[in-house]
Nucleic acid binder design. Structure first.
Lengths: 329, 329
DNA sequence: CGCGTTTACGTCGTTCGTAACGATA
DNA sequence: TATCGTTACGAACGACGTAAACGCG
């Protein structure tokens, strides 16, 4: 068993059991991977993958177990290299972030711009990911950190650092009846109107659905999109009333009427999620600092080192208090 | 970076920074290790060990970090091999246990004998360890499991499975004044007598010390030993009153008078402690089953797999309920 | 001068890539 | 027949062990 073999194994597993594709990804030849996989299987004494003819068909039950451990091994190896790179004060590297579109579009730009100013050598890679897969990307080791929102408690996986609170807003064209009134609508009223919102709000566990469920009503979702810009576009087109995150409303959106939804939906929290046992490069800490300035850098480092829960976080600031920063991006 | 290099690194660290000794332990030559260490350091770009002349002097601060990760990597690699060995249904292997002398002498024999009956090919290795170092042995990966007692909560490190409860007893020669009375002594009375007990009872955090501290008295510990047999020997010699674990009193000890100490000292719990994320061989589960029959095998396996706290243990049996079993050994 | 580490060197095993072959849909 | 995996083979690299040199107490 070698680290190379394990790396190949993971590459194959992550390439949908296509050895040729995996070989490209690790910059090696296909026969090389084939042989190494074979040797690993020989050494372990059982098949990691079930074959169908010559092709790999599925991952064995035992293979799953091994792959899981192999991931952990490779992650730790990467950690060792990260320690080394950081010690050499190497300012260049990569920052891979998995997040939702809204974060990437409205919340992250300021922090990433600031990071780029201090560490121009660091290449940031925003992994385009469906909302539901963000944490899986982190667990699989494809990204260094995830940025994700919940309506309540911290996400279960990894170590979650609270970045900020935010709320939803209701958006209509200026001529809309709701816009003419001086008070925001009730939930019941909202349920009677066609809504335009995020794809994720269709899911039963979404906090939007929960809010309506609580009063026994079902919202009419006229259309959904993964993308706040799309939602705004369709609100402008008169398709319905938009329900989206407050930070998605920017200066350029003056043509839309924004109503508070504070009283209707629970407050949401955006978290930075790190892999347990991951070693952060200096510039990663810098990014966290930029994105969530209320977090103490040493506390973050300490939390990762000890896995100790003895670190207490300060008050999580609401998004509004940061709008000045965000608007610059 | 290779697994071999990491293995050598750990061997060197565990051999007191003596490369020659480390080379023997891994069955390789000294120049081989020397060179691999050098290459690893070159690749990482910093020293893992500080040199004094040619010899290794201390572990670098960064070296500590790397060694910690390397241990984790090697442990996971061992886990993969364990999965493989178990899948091949290989009944031979090794079971390394770190524990205290009392457990090794009085509690473990029955379980180990039973294990040996079902798995004659498994070599059991009882790591002789000072009480305080038991958990360190486990953390360093030198043993598969630890068996250790506490007076209260589970030990912090690893995953602790409660095996049984036990209490202390007071032991005197038959002619002793305490033996003649029909009621057991009070703590105050005991404090006035010379005691013979375990080495660990000298430590401030021992539950024996705590009990005396609570009433503002200090026990007179006439002598201590790490070994219940020694304690009994010196009690027989009239050196003082013995305070030891109930399971240390066996059939051959009829020449000593045993008094209950239930009312004086808190109940103790003996735990089986496993490394988090360790994969157990089939025969290890068998051992656990033998040693703590009230634990469900699948629950143990599940606990290790998910790290989930959703497994609830049944009532922990007191030692007395197992004496029939223990006495056969 | 003994102990431990490093350097030097020759051998052997292994990996890797190229190229040809085989199987599957 | 196109796609994907295996087999075959030669070249290059790298690890290992032996032997000798070096430094330190």
């Amino acid at each position: 068993m070698t680290l190379v073999q394990l790396r190949y194994l993971i590459a194959i597993a992550d390439s949908g059991l296509n050895i040729t594709l995996a070989a490209e990804r690790v910059h090696a030849t296909q026969p090389g991977l084939s042989k190494q996989l074979r040797q690993l299987e020989d050494e372990l004494g059982f098949q990691l993958f079930a074959r169908k003819g010559k092709s790999l068909d599925t991952i064995t039950r035992a293979g799953e177990q091994v792959i899981e451990r192999a991931r952990s091994i490779l992650a730790e190896a990467a950690n060792i290299r990260a320690i080394a790179a950081d010690l050499r004060n190497q300012a260049h590297g990569e920052l891979r972030i998995a997040t939702t579109h809204t974060q990437a579009r409205f919340a992250l730009p300021a922090a990433i711009a600031a990071l780029n100013a201090s560490y121009p050598q660091v290449r940031v890679h925003l992994q385009p990911t469906r909302d539901a897969d963000v944490l899986a990307q982190l667990q699989a080791g494809h990204v260094d950190l995830a940025v994700i929102s919940t309506a309540g408690a911290a996400p279960a996986a990894g170590i979650a650092l609270p970045a900020y609170h935010w709320r939803r807003v209701i958006v209509t064209p200026h001529g809309h009846p709701l816009a003419a009134r001086d008070q925001p609508p009730s939930l019941a009223e909202l349920a009677s109107l066609p809504l335009v919102s995020y794809e994720s709000s269709l899911k039963a566990e979404s906090s939007l659905r929960h809010a309506f469920d609580a009063i026994g009503l079902t919202p009419q979702i006229a259309m959904t999109a993964g993308d706040a810009d799309l939602i705004k576009t369709y609100v402008r087109a008169g398709l319905g009333v938009g329900v989206l995150a407050e930070m998605a409303m920017q200066d350029g959106d003056r043509d839309l009427h924004t109503l508070s939804a504070e009283h209707l939906f629970p407050v949401c929290t955006t978290w930075i999620v790190l892999r347990r046992d991951s070693v952060l490069r200096e510039y990663m800490l810098e990014f966290i600092q930029q994105f969530a300035p209320h977090l103490d850098r040493r506390d973050v480092a300490r939390l990762l080192a000890n896995d100790a829960a003895d670190v207490h976080w300060p008050r999580i600031p609401p998004w509004r208090e940061r709008e000045g920063v965000a608007a610059t991006a």
